[in-house]
Design a protein around this nucleic acid. Sequence first.
DNA 1: AGCCCTCGAGTTCT
DNA 2: CTCGAGGGCT
Length: 804
Amino acid sequence: MTTNTPQQRITELQLLLNRYGHEYYVLDSPSVPDAEYDRLFRELQTLEQQYPQWVTLDSPTHRVGAAPLSAFQSLKHKVPMLSLSNAFSDMQLSTREQRHAELLQFDERVVKGLACNPVEYATEPKFDGLAISLVYENGLLSYAATRGDGITGENVTENIRTIRSIPLNLLAAPSLLEVRGEVLMLKRDFEQLNLDQAARGEKIFANPRNAAAGSLRQLDSRTTASRRLSFFAYAIAQVEGVNWPSSHQAEMDWLQTLGFALVAPALRPVVHGVDGLIHYYEHVLAQRADLPFDIDGVVYKVNQRTQQNELGFVSRAPRWALAHKFPAEEALTIVEAIEEQVGRTGAITPVARLQAVFVGGVTVTNATLHNEDEIKRKDVRVGDTVIVRRAGDVIPEVVSVVLAQRPMQAGMGTDLFSPGEQPRYPAYQLPSHCPICHSPILREAGEAIARCSGGMVCQAQRSQAIQHFAGRRMMDIDGLGERYIDNLVDLGYVHSVADLYTLKLHDLLEMKRRADERDGVTPESVQKGQIASKWAENLLAGITASTQPSLARLLFALGIRHVGESTAKTLADWLGSLTLIRRAPATLFAVLPDIGDVVAESLANFFAEANNQAALDALLQHVRPVNEHPPAASLLERLQTAALLSKMGIPRLSELRSQQLAAQVDDLVKLASLERRAILNLTLPAEVINELADWLEQAGNRENLLQLAKLTAEILSHLPQQQQAAALTGKTLVLTGSLPNLSREQAKTLIEAAGGKVASSVSKKTDYVVAGAEAGSKLSKAEELGIVILDETGLQTLLATQTP
DNA sequence: AGCCCTCGAGTTCT
DNA sequence: CTCGAGGGCT
């Protein structure tokens, strides 16, 4: 061996070890014995310790992990990690057409969209692991992130570095490359890990997926390094510096030459037409158990990129790809009881308590039965043997009852009970009264869900209202978990959300002590007391930290029916202040975008309730929304008399007629004060006039109109004086494809800030379409309709233009 | 009147 | 994640 400088030797060892590692972990064909690898590895470690100045980021020694983090940082994806549409095959059905109905539909849509048959599809197994995005800059792994919600993930770079089958530097280096793939644990590594864990008396993982997730979520990457994780690439999200390969298959082949691990080519063939897809599905399903890793289905992608672009996206999923899931694993168990849960809105949900059964990788003991009709349809009874599965691989569900195994019923000659006795296995009956507060349970006509009528009288609803209030997306009160809320409510320390803000340290400690006593938990020692007081201090800090929410969060936190995160934001953005919102009539709410009659009524009803107003007053003693502002300038056009009139629910008053009417009585006050005679003189079709006159004479309508008029005048007077319209006031834009520098969210925020509206689909009313890379069908539609199409620069220019 | 999409609400387990 | 309901558009 030639002797050279330590620096040269370090580089040499790094290259060698990276090559051997690649052979071992990616190609699965090592060219040197493990002992030789270990020897070189130790030599490199020693040298690097002596000469830390020559250690590089991509050194294989970095794979042993770095110092622990205190938390993962969140990281915004440059290109969102989309999800795929799902299809299932119903194995119960006999003909191929019935079994694969959803798959056939997919192919049909693709064929139609491309005018090409048969279409060339790239296939691959659908790994049951964790989706990860890897970003390489000039060939070096610069960061790695989890999928998260698809927009924002967590920075797990340190942990990812320890995965041997992920190259730290690429064999050829585009200036930028973002690769998507799945981190998972091979079955054999999972089994070995559990053996090791058991030997050390540590926790056993339920399945490879959980083991992989648990390992990747370690804050101490040295732990991750000790677990054997694998990575398989399946997509490219960004490339710069070289041409983007022209097909999915070419992308994959290229990734392989760069050093990424892929599944064996036989498992990812390119097939033709729907027959090819079905054949591939059956083929993979048959060998599922023999694969070295868990999969939960297969994925089909239109192979040619030009065709992918042609098909584009529907909302968040590409139209050119489909995840075809295998039927979920099913298991038999017994229904031990059916109990009712009471939700935040009083919704009564029957839940089956099941004899514990292992299915789909976890032990299931509960399964929702959704509602009364669902139970009736499936006829689930206590004592029944049922088939359960994890729907969408997450939520357990009762598929059906095995009637043949239902214990014998009355009159069937059973020895279970004597003649004349009630049948022991009666059909399920929804209780008439709430199990918690005993208020009547009511079910509105046409609704699937029955609700407890107790409102805030019901302790279940009260404590869940508080839980909702404290939630992360609402007031975000740290340290206030479900159990503590229940205790605080049960023991009478908290009756409504405002009470949270007057809690004192000694209240919390006393509550804790009483709860422990009640539950028969004896406080063991002083130490335990310290833990409790630590918890109490944290909670108080969390409560204090929540006193300055945004208006939208506060509105969402109130838990008004039909008002979620997005509606709360609409209200906050358009109306701007709680003072206005809490006394607005339904019609004003209904004027806002995406708020119709039902939501508007729900809001008005909430604020019409004296108790709610009082609770809100109490809350405002402690909490102040920080970002209240005057109503949005663009509210003006929505408040024009004609717009309001068409929202008033006056029979026969269409939008057009509303405009005609508004032209004659330009103000609601005037209209409200008109005598019947005067109305009859208006120039509108006779039947409209009559209906209008009748409507005005009906109880309350005239008053409503006046109230609305007064409020409108008041709002108008609060609107910002400078009628300098923002650049995009009243314009509707549609975004399609991905923009080079702006995420969808950012673009949307900018457009809205300029007074524009972002719609999801192109129609005649669309003013501009902003198209980026991989723009889909929305672009072609825009072209058809002759709508102005902008790129990102065009959008920026437009935003910068101030129309007077 | 009917279709498509988005939003809200409910749920399980680690 | 999934269902159902509400809202907006054709």
